[in-house]
Each structure stands twice: as structure tokens, then as C-alpha cells.
Amino acid sequence: MDSLEEAKAAVVEQFSLFDEWLDKYEYLIELGKDLEAFPVEHKTDEHLIEGCQSRVWLDTELRDGRLYFRADSDAIITKGIISLLIGVYSGRRPEEIASDDFSFVEAIGLRENLSPTRANGLSSMIARIRAEAKAQMS
């Protein structure tokens, strides 16, 4: 597995390949469509992330000292964004996730290109991933 730094750099590089924001969205849509199916029974209020305009669910599992995330959303671009996040952070140690600054999100310019409500949603997703990691720190 790539290191966290490598995984983030790969995303930044991938995004730099597209000139147009529409192409970046197309990429996010593909990520969203390719995301592993999320079990319906996990779509509970407990897994729902507050503060997103569209509904986003995040499910966390700790295995062998590493955190594994699964997620879903009823909006495909949001699903692509959460997919991007869990693609980078899933399978890492809680300490590593909790201490990361998530600044690669700024580097790809994602936040500025979302509507204010979606940018809030993005912050909520990041906060939730961090909180899950903190909760699992031994």
C-alpha cells in the first residue's frame, strides 16, 4: 500500500491532468459510480453525516489496528467526493488519520469549486472521518 503522502500526491496529480472543472466533476462522478456498494441496512441515522445538503452515510470498521471506511450518498458527485476521501484514508492507522491536516483537499481546489453548502458538507465529511479516527485511537 502507498503511504498516506503518496496517496494524497496521486490524487493531486490526477486532478492536475484536467483543465476544466467539468472534467474534474466527470472524474468524481466515475469515482462515485465505482464505489463499492453500501449495505442498505447500514443507512441508519447513526451513520448519516450531519451538515450535508445531500445525504451521506459513513461506516467505519477497525481491523488489525487499521480503519476501513465505506460510504454512500444519494448525490453522485458527493459520493465521488467521499469516495476520494476514503480512497486516501481507508486502511490506515487511526493515529495517522487523526493527525493528518487533510490539506490535499485544498491543493486540488475542490472546496472553492463547490457551492457554499457543499463546501460545508465537505468539512462535515472530513470532521467525521477525523472523529471516527480519534475515537479509535488506543
Binding site: 462522478i29 445538503q53 458527485i77 457551492s115
Partner: peptide, 11 residues
Amino acid sequence: HHEDLALLLDK
């Protein structure tokens, strides 16, 4: 989803 549609139209 309505939000996806509005976002792409905006772009």
C-alpha cells in the same frame, strides 16, 4: 440528484 444536476449546469 437535483444537486448534482445544478452543480454540473453551473459549470
